[in-house]
Design a protein around this nucleic acid. Sequence first.
DNA 1: AACATGACATAAG
DNA 2: CCTTATGCCATGT
Length: 108
Amino acid sequence: MIEKGKSTYDKIYDIVREIPQGKVASYGQIAELAGNRRWSRVVGYALNVSPEDKGLPCHRVVNRYGEPSKCFETAGENRQIKLLEAEGVRFVDGRVDMEHFQWNRRVF
DNA sequence: AACATGACATAAG
DNA sequence: CCTTATGCCATGT
Protein backbone atom coordinates (compact mmCIF):
# COMPACT_ATOMS: atom_id res chain seq x y z
CA MET A 1 0.00 0.00 0.00
CA ILE A 2 1.13 3.39 -0.65
CA GLU A 3 1.46 5.14 2.59
CA LYS A 4 1.09 8.77 2.08
CA GLY A 5 -0.40 11.53 4.04
CA LYS A 6 2.78 11.28 6.01
CA SER A 7 4.21 14.66 5.49
CA THR A 8 7.67 15.64 6.52
CA TYR A 9 6.26 17.11 9.68
CA ASP A 10 4.57 13.85 10.56
CA LYS A 11 7.84 12.00 10.24
CA ILE A 12 9.48 14.54 12.45
CA TYR A 13 6.74 14.32 15.05
CA ASP A 14 7.00 10.57 14.94
CA ILE A 15 10.67 10.70 15.83
CA VAL A 16 10.19 13.28 18.53
CA ARG A 17 7.56 11.12 20.17
CA GLU A 18 10.12 8.35 20.47
CA ILE A 19 12.48 10.37 22.57
CA PRO A 20 12.48 8.63 25.94
CA GLN A 21 12.10 10.42 29.18
CA GLY A 22 15.35 11.67 30.60
CA LYS A 23 16.93 12.05 27.19
CA VAL A 24 17.20 14.81 24.65
CA ALA A 25 17.82 14.98 20.92
CA SER A 26 19.18 17.70 18.72
CA TYR A 27 17.34 19.11 15.75
CA GLY A 28 19.94 17.74 13.40
CA GLN A 29 19.68 14.34 14.98
CA ILE A 30 15.92 14.27 14.61
CA ALA A 31 16.23 15.46 11.05
CA GLU A 32 18.60 12.62 10.30
CA LEU A 33 16.40 10.04 11.95
CA ALA A 34 13.41 11.43 10.09
CA GLY A 35 15.16 10.79 6.83
CA ASN A 36 17.15 13.85 5.91
CA ARG A 37 19.78 15.49 8.04
CA ARG A 38 19.22 18.78 6.27
CA TRP A 39 15.82 19.14 7.83
CA SER A 40 17.21 20.63 11.00
CA ARG A 41 15.50 23.91 10.26
CA VAL A 42 12.33 22.18 9.28
CA VAL A 43 12.34 20.33 12.58
CA GLY A 44 12.35 23.57 14.48
CA TYR A 45 9.65 24.96 12.27
CA ALA A 46 7.58 21.82 12.68
CA LEU A 47 7.74 22.05 16.44
CA ASN A 48 6.94 25.71 16.30
CA VAL A 49 3.71 25.04 14.46
CA SER A 50 3.03 21.79 16.25
CA PRO A 51 -0.72 21.62 16.78
CA GLU A 52 -0.62 20.26 20.30
CA ASP A 53 1.90 19.23 22.88
CA LYS A 54 0.01 16.03 23.37
CA GLY A 55 2.40 13.14 23.14
CA LEU A 56 4.92 15.48 21.65
CA PRO A 57 7.77 15.99 24.09
CA CYS A 58 9.05 19.01 22.27
CA HIS A 59 10.89 20.03 25.42
CA ARG A 60 13.28 17.15 24.80
CA VAL A 61 14.54 18.79 21.66
CA VAL A 62 17.50 21.10 21.91
CA ASN A 63 20.07 22.46 19.54
CA ARG A 64 23.43 20.80 19.06
CA TYR A 65 24.85 22.65 22.04
CA GLY A 66 22.14 21.38 24.31
CA GLU A 67 20.63 24.81 24.65
CA PRO A 68 16.87 24.99 25.13
CA SER A 69 14.63 27.08 22.96
CA LYS A 70 13.96 30.66 23.87
CA CYS A 71 10.31 30.04 23.17
CA PHE A 72 10.18 28.31 26.54
CA GLU A 73 11.45 31.32 28.36
CA THR A 74 8.98 32.59 30.83
CA ALA A 75 9.52 34.98 33.68
CA GLY A 76 13.23 34.80 32.98
CA GLU A 77 13.29 31.04 33.41
CA ASN A 78 13.23 28.30 30.84
CA ARG A 79 10.33 25.99 31.39
CA GLN A 80 12.13 23.53 29.20
CA ILE A 81 15.02 23.28 31.62
CA LYS A 82 12.70 22.60 34.54
CA LEU A 83 10.86 19.93 32.61
CA LEU A 84 14.07 18.20 31.62
CA GLU A 85 15.61 18.42 35.06
CA ALA A 86 12.44 16.89 36.41
CA GLU A 87 13.15 13.94 34.12
CA GLY A 88 16.67 13.59 35.37
CA VAL A 89 18.53 15.52 32.69
CA ARG A 90 21.45 17.41 34.09
CA PHE A 91 22.32 20.88 32.99
CA VAL A 92 25.73 22.44 33.02
CA ASP A 93 26.08 26.15 32.65
CA GLY A 94 22.61 26.41 31.18
CA ARG A 95 23.18 23.62 28.68
CA VAL A 96 22.31 19.97 28.65
CA ASP A 97 25.16 17.59 29.31
CA MET A 98 24.86 16.15 25.82
CA GLU A 99 27.65 13.69 26.42
CA HIS A 100 25.45 11.81 28.82
CA PHE A 101 21.88 12.75 28.00
CA GLN A 102 21.67 12.87 24.24
CA TRP A 103 19.29 10.26 22.95
CA ASN A 104 20.96 7.32 21.29
CA ARG A 105 17.84 5.65 19.88
CA ARG A 106 19.65 2.37 20.22
CA VAL A 107 19.81 2.22 23.91
CA PHE A 108 22.85 0.47 25.15
C1' DA B 1 6.16 30.27 -9.30
C1' DA B 2 8.54 33.80 -6.19
C1' DC B 3 9.44 35.56 -1.75
C1' DA B 4 9.71 35.48 3.18
C1' DT B 5 10.12 32.90 7.50
C1' DG B 6 12.31 29.92 10.98
C1' DA B 7 12.73 26.38 18.13
C1' DC B 8 19.23 24.76 13.00
C1' DA B 9 24.15 23.65 11.49
C1' DT B 10 28.53 24.88 9.96
C1' DA B 11 32.33 27.93 8.57
C1' DA B 12 34.95 32.00 8.90
C1' DG B 13 36.83 36.24 11.02
C1' DC C 1 33.09 33.53 22.94
C1' DC C 2 30.85 36.68 19.59
C1' DT C 3 28.83 38.09 15.24
C1' DT C 4 28.10 37.34 10.16
C1' DA C 5 27.28 34.88 6.31
C1' DT C 6 25.80 30.82 3.79
C1' DG C 7 23.49 26.35 3.14
C1' DC C 8 19.34 23.78 3.65
C1' DC C 9 14.35 22.75 3.18
C1' DA C 10 9.12 22.61 4.20
C1' DT C 11 5.27 26.01 4.69
C1' DG C 12 2.38 29.91 4.08
C1' DT C 13 1.05 34.00 1.62
